[in-house]
Design a protein around this nucleic acid. Structure first.
Lengths: 229, 229
DNA sequence: CTACCCCGGATTGGATCCGATATACAATAT
DNA sequence: ATATTGTATATCGGATCCAATCCGGGGTAG
């Protein structure tokens, strides 16, 4: 029987769908810091009742992407410079650990896949896709690590930082620089040099951290210190 | 007006209450791996409807403490040796980083607080409290780090491991050994030696990891490889 | 005797309804 | 005029109701 079965267990609940949609919207910056999430508005958008929406909101709150104020509603939460910087530190630590574990298990096929994503990242002119491709590139390499818990925490860290990393890619030469660094990381992986891959990854993340710090400092100097609490 | 107001905004929702109760029950091993969470049974226990129970279950699922199978219900998830070991590795890394950041900010008051918890841990004869005190000891020291994101991930890691750490404390000399190691860590903190505190903490965690590995290996050799999937 | 099918109870997921709370605005008193 | 109080509306949290799905047992055909 050459029937191509589809995994039914992947059928998601309505709440799961709403969650993914809201999560994507927040990560991509479509919903900005402080934006309120009105339950019945969202319910109407998805042609569902408020129950799945509430489910999605509690999931988002567990991930730290929104904060729910009892009887007042949920709002998207942003990061202060301090918070963002801490999460970047976390990523330096964990990304480094993960890629070091991953390099010895990378197959040529995986390298090729990462190279393809890298190429797509380089040639894409649509800044909207840069963030996704950037993330896909790193996560593809990390798949080889077989460290699901670490990847889970990393995914959450990325979820919170992505909005700012995307802004970072838009800066002058941000995209070109990221691409150059990706190629270096890829090379190190291809020749099996785990230490180099780890060091390059840390440098890559530190660059984004530093850039964001300067960027936010400039913004806050202009508008006064609108530090998120 | 000398009226001592209480902050009403701290009132938690019913879902939050149920979540905390279930979380505690899972962490303390009261609910074991594979135990099903029946919605209306729990709802009856808390004199509420199933809505807050469902909310609690989605929170638990986000934390990785239970897995919800669509239309079949939620069950408590356990850890395989591999999974537990990975999370111990994570803890070695993060605990070390966090305590190194915390030591320079520790006040005498904090050290005293930790010493008190340590003493309570040493003198308590009730194994049910050992786990809580053990955890409180470490988290108290870590408060000084001012790294909320790291502490969040660490809390989740502890939530998943605690059941096994508790079993570990029950082993011969497990409690005595943990206490001795706590005193060493405390000493290093008191004299401001961050590196020593970090190294001792890593050794402390590695001990639990190794002990658990042997323990589970013994169990699984007896019962066949009942590896959690 | 076995394999299959169908059906009913148990359980979950989603919709609708209702009470509780917060916010904005109008009314009133000092 | 301002501050305080009452009220109306928007919104949320929780209860109840209904539909969808799973599981096990009994019946039936081969």
């Amino acid at each position: 029987m050459a029937l191509k079965g589809v995994d039914v267990s992947k059928m998601v609940s309505a709440g799961g769908l709403v969650f993914e949609a809201l999560r994507r919207a927040i990560i991509e910056g479509e919903l900005k810091d402080g934006d309120p999430l009105r339950q019945d508005e969202i319910a109407r958008l998805f042609h569902t009742s408020r129950i799945p929406v509430r489910e999605a909101i509690t999931m988002l709150e567990q991930q730290g992407l929104v904060k729910n104020h009892r009887f007042k509603g949920a709002v998207v939460v942003g990061l202060s410079i301090t918070e963002a910087s801490e999460i970047f530190d976390f990523r330096c630590n964990i990304d480094s650990h993960v890629i070091r574990a991953a390099v010895p298990h990378m197959t040529p096929a995986l390298i090729a896949e990462a190279r393809a994503i890298c190429a797509a990242f380089a040639s894409s002119g649509d800044p909207m896709h840069w963030g996704n491709l950037n993330r896909a590139f790193h996560l593809t390499l990390y798949q080889a690590s077989n460290l699901p818990f670490h990847l889970g925490t990393l995914t959450n860290a990325m979820d919170r930082l992505d909005r700012y990393v995307r802004a970072q890619l838009l800066l002058t030469e941000g995209h070109a620089r990221a691409n150059a660094e990706h190629l270096e990381i890829l090379d190190a992986c291809a020749r099996g040099d785990a230490n180099a891959a780890a060091d390059l990854t840390v440098a890559h993340i530190r660059g984004a951290q530093q850039g964001l710090r300067e960027h936010l400092a400039k913004i806050q100097a202009k508008f006064g210190t609108a530090e998120a609490t």
